[in-house]
Amino acid sequence: MPKISSKGQNMPASPIRKLVPYAEAAKKRGIKVIHLNIGQPDIKTPRAALDAVKNMDIEVLAYSRTEGSEAYRDKIADYYAKHGIHISASEIIVTTGGSEALSFTMGTILDNGDEIIIPEPFYANYNGFAQANGVNVVPIASSIASNFALPPISEFEKSITPRTKAILICNPGNPTGYLYTHHEIAQLAKLVKKHDLFLVADEVYREFAYDDKQHHSILREPGLEQHAIVVDSVSKRYSMCGARIGCVVSKNPSVIESVLKFAQARLSPPTLAQIASEAALGTPQSYFDEVKQEYVSRRDVLVSELEKIAGIKIARPSGAFYCVAELPIADADHFAQWLLEEFEIEGETVMVAPAGGFYATPELGKNQIRIAYVLKNEVLKRAVHILKEGLKQYAESGN
């Protein structure tokens, strides 16, 4: 029998989706599963985005330009200008989601065997993108005790080797919800300039910054023009996860030229989704104000309810819509599966994302879970009640 590649064998499974078969089996048994495991917002997509597709008069659904339509990229540049970031359409490559943007970025700046430093826990698919590109992830552990703030810059300095080519951050963070301060961004900027590295920032949750805190984009850092690469997406900002439209943004012309060549290999981003995404850029600020208010309310309800559970530790998020909780158990993977296979209350259970898969260092995060607070408050309260009772029965059963 022919064998698949070692790269394929070593490709990590998604910690967010690997429990799906158990959830589907529970549903077939008649159990209602409350999904706390995946960041699929229930916020309505802006009507203008949907109407733009519905009302289009295209007769031939043709390829778009490889780098994305000029009209769309011009409007993306206008969007950034409103955030004090001055770029041109030529410094933007539209991609099929933020995932493709990350993959193209890694392919552009890293060779086989090179290293990229990432504070952990981090978005689990970073491991997959690195594996697919033959890149080694060098993790720097952050702590739930500090809300997953940026680890000391000395830890980054110690980890830099001749094979280090970049540092990658997610800001605000998935899975932590941590929002980096300007001081932390400035520290990273100074470090990458000192060692001539790239600084890659996944800023797809830029709009979701809470408690009167501000998001600080690396594109606004002076002197970082040749080092900074931003990955962005419409998925969370406009609740358009299914559109699969993202982009790579950089003032470094060599980066853009290389990303364009990777993009040419896949021909073009989806035309219909670009039409929707271009229309979404006209969404008024009131939409984001309302969405932020809703997420702050959900966060506060979630944290308040979780704090009622004995033995639990919570990192209070300041952005995005994720929360990491440390549970009084040894193995969150086993617990999450047990919730789906052996536990229910009045025909309901919950699905969580074990946080171990968001770490690159073995054994870290084994007793942690990520919760996505993308459900209404009453559902979140019910879900935490089920989680609380589940922890109690799990302990009583000898686990």
Rank of each mutant, 00 (worst) to 15 (best):
V200P: 00
E207K: 12
L168M: 12
Y180S: 02
Q214E: 12
N174K: 04
S239K: 06
A186E: 12
H182E: 14
L179W: 03
V192G: 02
L219M: 15
S235P: 08
V204Q: 08
L260V: 08
D211H: 12
I229S: 01
E207G: 03
A166R: 01
P172L: 08
P175F: 07
G223V: 06
H215V: 05
A166P: 03
I185R: 01
L224H: 01
I185N: 03
E207M: 10
L267W: 14
C247L: 05
Y205N: 12
L219P: 02
V248S: 01
S268F: 09
S258C: 15
R237Q: 15
K190C: 10
D202E: 10
K165V: 04
I185S: 03
K194W: 06
P269L: 06
P253I: 09
N174P: 00
S233M: 04
K165E: 04
K236M: 14
F198S: 03
Q187S: 14
D232W: 11
M240G: 00
L267Y: 15
S233H: 05
A243H: 07
H227V: 01
L224N: 01
D232T: 15
V249P: 00
A263D: 05
A201I: 05
Y178Q: 06
E207A: 11
S217Q: 10
S268V: 06
K213Q: 13
H182T: 07
L260E: 11
Q264C: 07
E257R: 12
G246C: 10
R244Q: 13
G223K: 07
D232M: 05
E203D: 06
D196Y: 09
V204A: 07
S235R: 13
V192H: 06
Y180D: 00
V234R: 02
G177K: 03
Y180H: 10
K236A: 13
A265K: 12
K236F: 13
S233I: 03
K251T: 06
D196M: 04
H195R: 15
C247W: 06
L197K: 01
Q226L: 13
H227S: 13
V204T: 11
E225W: 07
K261H: 08
A201H: 11
V230H: 00
E257C: 05
I245F: 04
G173R: 03
K194C: 05
D196L: 08
L179K: 02
D202N: 15
L219S: 05
K261M: 13
V230D: 00
A209H: 11
H195D: 06
T181Y: 10
I256T: 05
E225D: 11
V200T: 03
G173V: 10
V234P: 01
A263N: 06
V204M: 13
T181F: 11
K165S: 07
H227N: 14
A201E: 14
F262H: 15
H195Q: 09
A209K: 09
K236H: 15
E203R: 02
R266F: 12
P175T: 09
M240A: 05
L260W: 09
I169P: 00
K190H: 15
E257S: 13
K251I: 08
I169E: 00
A243T: 04
H182L: 11
G246A: 09
E203I: 05
Y178P: 02
P222Y: 09
R266L: 12
Q214F: 08
L168G: 03
V255P: 00
H195S: 11
D232V: 06
I218S: 04
E257W: 03
K251P: 01
K251S: 08
E221T: 10
